[in-house]
């Protein structure tokens, strides 16, 4: 009885923690970590910048422009990312536009992050008291200066926790690149799994994601407490 249980446990270890397989495929998964990290950094930098820019543009309240920004933000918040990724990846070549899988994933996820960032920052901008605008303008600051030096910093404070959560959720979506062949962590792991006939690479990949993202999840928990308004 006892030996059977032991062999069962051994079999489990052989399948999920196979040292030989782990050593053999660790370098390719590490290369995947590089791709995932690089993509995530690019998406956050460009997506956040674009989202902030759009929220600021919306503050000028130019009718048609605001309308276009709202439509953009709504569409990219409503569509499932994988639908957009497949649409762009398989649709554009037939329209004569050729992008690599990496570029497709980068462009799509950046636009999605920009859409969410715009909405979050816009909610922040509108929540800043009107008196702040009036006071700043009466000291002689122009509209753009008021927006940049007075309103945006206050809007940011309110926006930081939801922005962090959204950035984590969207950079996690880099795993969707697997479907179109971006050599990210998940892609390397599924390839390794089918070559080795062993589940260890998948477990290693899951571990890599947890190591990458857990610090940010814990940080978001801390930020939420740090930036929450004092309860009355």
């Amino acid at each position: 009885m006892e030996t059977e249980a032991l062999s069962g446990l051994e079999r489990f270890a052989q399948t999920f923690l196979n040292w030989e397989v782990l050593v053999k495929y660790a370098p390719s998964i590490l290369a995947g970590v590089g791709v995932t990290v690089w993509l995530s950094v690019l998406i956050i930098l460009v997506g956040m910048t674009l989202g902030t820019l759009l929220a600021c543009l919306r503050a000028y309240r130019v009718g048609p422009l605001s309308f276009l920004i709202v439509v953009f933000a709504d569409v990219f918040r409503a569509l499932p990312p994988l639908v957009v990724i497949l649409l762009v990846f398989f649709g554009l070549p037939n329209a004569g536009i050729y992008l690599s899988a990496f570029m497709v994933l980068f462009v799509v996820l950046t636009l999605i992050l920009a859409a969410f960032a715009e909405e979050i920052l816009w909610a922040g901008i509108t929540s800043v008291d009107k008196g702040q605008w009036e006071a700043a303008r009466s000291t002689g600051l122009g509209f753009t200066q008021t927006l940049g030096y007075v309103i945006l910093p206050q809007a940011m404070r309110l926006a930081i926790p939801p922005l962090t959560n959204r950035a984590i959720a969207i950079t996690k979506m880099t795993a969707l690149g697997t479907v179109i062949g971006v050599p990210d962590i998940l892609n390397q792991a599924t390839t390794a799994q089918s070559f080795s006939g062993n589940a260890s690479p998948l477990l290693l990949a899951a571990l890599a994601y947890v190591l990458l993202f857990l610090p940010f999840v814990i940080m978001s928990r801390w930020l939420e407490r740090r930036y929450s308004w004092k309860k009355a």
Binding site: M173, L202, A206
Partner: peptide
């Protein structure tokens, strides 16, 4: 589970667990 991408979780459950 907030740190693991849902697709990684899904592929693990679907194609990893059969190994067990």
């Amino acid at each position: 589970f907030r740190a693991i991408p849902p697709l990684v979780l899904l592929i693990f459950v679907y194609s990893g667990l059969p190994f067990a």
